[in-house]
Write a protein that binds this DNA or RNA. Structure first.
Length: 115
DNA sequence: ACCGTGACGGCGA
DNA sequence: TTCGCCGCCACGG
């Protein structure tokens, strides 16, 4: 995946991207869950790394939503075109949404320790 | 080295 | 249930 000259990436970012890559198509995870998977105490910090993800969509940062299952942001935007794109990508992967625009239950991916 | 800024999360109102 | 506040922690200036 990130076999290029990634000196611009911090160690933290690599951990975030690696964990994110584990999420399969058709499933989503949350910033909080991902943070926990890499032993980080801040979901917000995870979001910071994802917003500058240089490997999208190889590293599926679009499969990460908020804990309340609302869509969250995409490439720095918390609303607008990019966010709509995020929803479309998920729909294409088979992810279902409820009438409130949140990811329907039963589609969360739980990180089961491997890294 | 300090300070402000976030694709967040939990909690009280 | 939605809103606001505060805590979290990594980054750039």
């Amino acid at each position: 995946m990130m076999n290029q000259t990634n000196e611009a990436l911090t160690d933290f970012q690599r951990k975030v991207y690696e964990a994110c890559s584990q999420i399969p198509a058709g499933k989503v995870s949350t910033y909080g869950l991902l943070a926990k998977a890499i032993s980080c105490g801040s979901a917000q910090a995870v979001g910071q790394a994802l917003k500058v993800n240089p490997f999208a969509p190889e590293v599926p940062c679009h499969r990460v939503v908020k804990t309340d299952r609302s869509i969250g942001g995409f490439f720095g935007q918390r609303e607008g075109a990019e966010v709509t794109r995020k929803v479309n990508l998920l729909k294409e992967e088979g992810v279902k949404f409820d009438e409130r625009g949140r990811v329907a239950q039963g589609q969360l991916w739980a990180f089961s320790r491997e890294g």
